[in-house]
């Protein structure tokens, strides 16, 4: 019983601390990583900063909601790519997806960069992921503005609001028209 009490007290303390910080984790920067893309080329997260918000999505081929998420995010990517919006989709299947992943990506029409987290070190350790799909979104400076687990069609409405909020004023004309809508 005392063990449960300790867990509850510790957790409540963290929960209160989290809410006391204003319900966002803007003070946290996204953990830096380097991974290979599906063609074997090295990609580093910090290369993506500076132009606009960065949407980092952890996914797997077997994960049906992940596929729905990335199909829908592709639409947002096409809409806001010129405004600096970036997408990094990090596959967590491990080596078992190696023979299929390029076909799967091409078939789904994803034009953003696909990275391979072969041993899950980025997903599990650096980003503390427990379930898929797991999403982390940063502002152009790399500060985390949004994280979520799971995806249902309709969630992209909130993502689009965040994109519009964090697109630099000078880089995109869409922002003003969308904001007026």
């Amino acid at each position: 019983m005392s063990l449960r009490l300790i867990i509850i007290i510790a957790f409540c303390a963290l929960l209160l601390a989290s809410f006391a910080q204003g319900q966002t984790i803007k003070s946290k920067t996204a953990p830096e990583f380097s991974l290979k893309d599906i063609n074997g080329k090295k990609v580093t997260l910090k290369e993506y900063y500076g132009e606009g918000p960065v949407y980092i999505s952890f996914w797997a081929i077997w994960c049906k909601p992940c596929r729905e998420e990335l199909k829908i995010i592709q639409g947002l990517y096409e809409k806001y790519e010129e405004c600096g919006f970036k997408v990094l989709a990090i596959n967590t299947d491990g080596p078992k997806a190696g023979g299929k992943i390029k076909s799967f990506v091409k078939s789904n029409g994803w034009s953003f960069n696909i990275l391979i987290d072969n041993d899950g070190e980025v997903f599990r350790r650096k980003y503390k992921g427990f379930a898929l799909p797991y999403t982390v979104m940063t502002d152009p400076e790399g500060n985390i503005v949004f994280t979520t687990i799971g995806f249902k069609p309709g969630d992209e409405k909130h993502v689009e609001e965040l994109i519009l909020e964090h697109i630099p004023q000078t880089t995109c004309a869409i922002e003003e028209t969308e904001a007026e809508d």
Partner: peptide, 27 residues
Amino acid sequence: AGGVFCLLSLADSCPAQEDYWSVSAAN
């Protein structure tokens, strides 16, 4: 847990955190 609570509580008020050190946790 107490240590993490203190660090997280102080995190926002500490300007050095973003630039040099940071604490993150998940449960």
